[in-house]
């Protein structure tokens, strides 16, 4: 399948204590396992089943995903800024692939 490409939108700078909004999206077909192909057989399930967002090793937000989430899963959530640091966003695919992207946050 086409390679999944994660995209993340986070502010580059923020003030301590501010609640920032983070938007993430990953290109993925999210095959539900309930659809039938042209040959009449079920297409095997292949979805992103887990998403986690961490800041400096501490979990901000995580989602256990079921097949009812749309293709190209989009997630928007918030974080209260504790200080400068680095975000780590991780997506886990049913086939075992793990997609990771990082982003830095400055104070100012």
């Amino acid at each position: 399948m086409a390679k999944s490409k994660p995209r993340v939108k986070v502010p580059k700078t923020a003030t301590v204590g501010e609640v920032i909004t983070i938007k993430t999206l990953i290109s993925h077909k999210m095959e539900s396992g309930l659809r039938k192909g042209k040959d009449g057989n079920l297409i095997p399930r292949q979805i992103i089943n887990k998403f986690t967002a961490e800041f400096e090793g501490q979990q901000i937000f995580a989602v256990d995903i079921d097949p009812a989430i749309s293709a190209n899963p989009f997630l928007e959530f918030t974080m209260k800024v504790p200080g400068p640091g680095e975000f780590t966003f991780t997506w886990v695919d049913d086939d075992g692939s793990v997609y990771t992207t990082k982003s830095k946050l400055k104070i100012g």
């Binding site: 609640v19 920032i20 539900s32 309930l34 800041f55 501490q58 979990q59 901000i60 937000f61 995580a62 989602v63 256990d64 995903i65 079921d66 097949p67 009812a68 989430i69 749309s70 899963p73 989009f74 997630l75 928007e76 959530f77 918030t78 974080m79 209260k80 800024v81 504790p82």
Partner: peptide, 26 residues
């Protein structure tokens, strides 16, 4: 839905506010 499960979201005090948006299938 054929399977009612959609997602489980895990928040933490670091979240700042318990708000999240996503897109789902119906």
């Amino acid at each position: 839905n054929p399977r009612p499960a959609v997602a489980t979201m895990h928040f933490s005090p670091l979240s700042g506010s318990a708000e999240a948006n996503t897109r789902m299938r119906l």
